[in-house]
């Protein structure tokens, strides 16, 4: 599963007003969960999913409530160590408030001795940095919150 697929899932959630989405594919499992915005919620019985398809849970309010200012998460595409900059002496790739384009480098994730420069892949403003320098990140773990342009 790569970042593009994860973004598609996020789009799916947004289009369908879902708060939570869990996808199981072979031995891979990913769960995406949005911050609850406080509107009235309708709990539906989980749909029986075919193998490889998403099982939707807890769709958000039916009423056209004011949409939460949706932020997009930049997630780690692998297990590894998160670094804010390319070296201890260098400035961080991004800080809160920085504008990013899809090609902007936002961090390094070191995995298995390989240094991966992670690109934003979205356009917008960094509103939150969720991981500390040197911290281990899991596959799919959100690292940054971006307010889309």
């Amino acid at each position: 599963m790569d970042i593009k697929e994860i973004h598609r899932l996020i789009e799916l959630m947004n289009e369908n007003d879902l708060l939570e989405l869990e996808l199981v594919e072979d031995s891979k499992k990913i769960r995406l969960k949005k911050k609850y915005d406080g509107g009235p919620r309708m709990i539906a019985a989980p749909m029986v999913a075919q193998a490889g398809h998403a099982a939707a849970a807890a769709p958000a309010t039916h009423a056209p409530a004011s949409p939460a200012a949706g932020t997009i998460e930049i997630k780690s595409p692998m297990v590894g160590t998160f670094y804010r900059s390319s070296s201890p002496e260098s400035p961080a790739y991004v800080e809160e408030g920085d504008q990013v384009t899809p090609e902007s480098a936002v961090c390094i994730v070191e995995a298995m001795k390989v240094f991966n420069e992670i690109k934003a892949e979205v356009e917008g403003t960094i509103v939150a940095i969720l991981i500390e320098n040197g911290q281990t990140v899991e596959y799919g773990q959100p690292m940054f919150l971006v307010k889309p342009a």
């Binding site: 595409p77 899809p102 001795k113 390989v114 240094f115 420069e117 992670i118 690109k119």
Partner: peptide
């Protein structure tokens, strides 16, 4: 370990592998 090449205890070669998330 992990990937330095040494001769008689001193480093003679360094290796750095890089990847980029936008170029699979």
């Amino acid at each position: 370990w992990p990937n330095d090449v040494i001769i008689r205890g001193r480093k003679v070669c360094g290796i750095l592998v890089e990847a980029r998330s936008n170029v699979p």
